[in-house]
Design a protein around this nucleic acid. Structure first.
Lengths: 344, 344
DNA sequence: ATGAAAGCGCTAACAG
DNA sequence: CTGTTAGCGCTTTCAT
């Protein structure tokens, strides 16, 4: 029966330490202002009472909740979804290190056939000053939410480039998918492959176009042909499987894919023809999802932990400095090499 | 340039509507107390000003943050990890419907070889009254945190039974893994299999023992032998693959597994011998992870959306009623049948 | 049905 | 270096 009573307050600590409330406040927020001996006395009282400052009162006074909002959209891009869990964990950890917590919210259910409100959920939190800032993740496809948030002067940092808004001035952090795919392409080239195919998404996704560009660039750098080695399909296993079959007919001996899902499709296509992944034909996915890890699929891995740290860094800059930080960080992914792309 | 100024306050609304602050407060919290015409006038002012009550002030006054805390542990059980993303989404959505948000926190990094603090992160949030209650997820393996939280009189609800604490009185919601596995076993029996093997975890996990019990019970109910049809290994693909090989040697024609990871191992074992999953040998996993979905693996699916709703229900009861709700809910999982277990 | 007064716990500004 | 005063925005008495 440790805590039957309500938590201790500043006044309780002050009384016990024989000082004023303000001195206790200073002991916590500006310890340098106190004489060492006083500080010790106050600190002892704090420990004895198990005192922790009341969050609401501090928030009300300082106008800072030390909370960052993150919206979970009901249906995100499948690939993004797979990485979300890892990203959220990384963000929580990075935020913790600077004394912040993460507040999760959702935009609410979207009625069938309805256009989801880009600001759904954001607005209330903003006006109720429940969070200090937002981390925005779904910036794909010309999502208008960053524009809207900027218009409202809402403090936020984005995971993802403002693809469709060259005028954007908010801080953002992104991963260079293009260079990740280029590295993957070079990797399979190093395994001896020359007919390296791109198994990508249908046009319309800037992320997808960026990834494809990495393949195209690397192929050019290696002086390899690309004609007939390219497919653009929906992000599903079946679509990937069918498209990979066609590419195999065109003589492809390696697949670099826009997602792990498509890569799994390619693996299935190999299975259909009794071709051994790795030894005969190389397959590389994107996102290093659990699927890739479990299936031994080589995959491009986003440095989400680092993304989170950079985002939190930009966030603290944004909230402390009055000047605009204007952080624009592009991180390089790594390649997790597994047996689907190696002959060993 | 919508919101250059700080958000409107109750006083702003009152002035604009020509009433006192108190009346505005009533309009929001007790609309019945107002004359309809006054209510309309106040409501108009609220809309015009885009007023939303300040969260901190309300929290300070009412001593309710309308926040539930959820701890993300750095390294959870692999299987649990896979379902976590879905559960978090469901929880955020369920909480939203009763006007709650989810606050994510972590216990902080655990030093190498150190015993992680079961209360890490909880304590500060509790004493700072930052959250109204917690949702505790990792109740496996005699995790002492529920006991500690109960001792501190912290309001919380648990996802997971208090396996090792028969005296526990907190509300909990869990999924009946045993019945899910029994259903899976009966399903493969219906596909004509009789040598149905259990591919499970090493002893020591109550969850694992519970799932195994479902297989054992169903086998007995069908009058089928179990001797030599059981393996207990670590939760990894390689371990599952090796163990499945042995079980195949013992004549197993179906695998019911404690996790999707082990099921993938079993699929690999089939691949090693050129056996077709589904047609020749059935494989069923547990958790309906993305791996299962992508690989066409039949799997037991936990009703996480329903779990979240039940948890939130128990939570509101816990926070509203003074009496102990003592909710104990056991939900039944469903079976997602895919081609790994069907002959069609 | 509406208004006035008080105070939740904290910290910024100033006084000593 | 420490204490006093004031007030953040809201809701809960208690009057009217």
């Amino acid at each position: 029966m440790e805590n039957p009573r309500p938590p201790a307050t500043l006044a309780d600590v002050a009384e016990r330490a024989g000082v004023s409330r303000q001195t206790v406040s200073n002991a916590i927020n500006n310890p340098d202002l106190l004489r060492p001996e006083t500080l010790v006395r106050v600190q002892d009282a704090i420990d004895a009472l198990g005192y922790t400052p009341n969050h609401a009162a501090r928030h009300l006074r300082t106008r800072s909740s030390r909370l960052v909002g993150l919206r979970l959209t009901p249906a995100q891009e499948f690939t993004a979804n797979m990485a979300m869990d890892r990203f959220v964990r990384a963000l929580v950890e990075a935020a913790r290190e600077v004394g912040y917590h993460v507040l999760l919210f959702s935009g609410g259910p979207v009625a069938e056939g309805d256009v989801p409100d880009p600001l759904g959920g954001y607005d209330d939190l903003l006006r109720s000053t429940a969070v200090d800032a937002f981390v925005v993740t779904d910036t794909y496809l010309g999502n208008p939410q960053t524009v809207e948030l900027a218009r409202r002067r809402a403090p936020f940092v984005a995971f993802g480039r403002p693809w469709d808004d060259p005028d954007a001035t908010h801080p953002w952090v992104d991963v260079d998918g293009s260079s990740g795919v280029a590295a993957a392409t070079t990797h399979v080239r190093g395994q001896g492959h020359e007919r390296i195919a791109w198994l990508g998404w249908e046009p319309g996704s800037r992320i997808g176009e960026d990834r494809r560009a990495g393949w195209f660039r690397a192929m050019a750098a290696h002086g390899l042909p690309t004609a007939g080695l390219e497919a653009a399909v929906a992000d599903s296993v079946d679509a990937g499987r069918a498209a990979a079959g066609v590419l195999l007919d065109n003589g492809a001996t390696a697949f670099v894919c826009a997602s792990d899902t498509l890569a799994v499709g390619a693996l299935h296509a190999l299975g259909d023809r009794g071709i051994a992944p790795g030894r005969d034909v190389a397959v590389v996915g994107f996102d290093d999802s659990q699927v890739a890890q479990v299936m031994g699929l080589t995959s491009v891995r986003q440095p989400l932990e680092q993304v989170a740290v950079e985002l939190v860094g930009a966030l603290t800059d944004l909230l402390s400095a009055a000047e605009h930080p204007d952080a624009e960080v592009l991180l390089t992914p790594s390649l997790e090499v597994r047996r689907s792309s190696t002959r060993g």
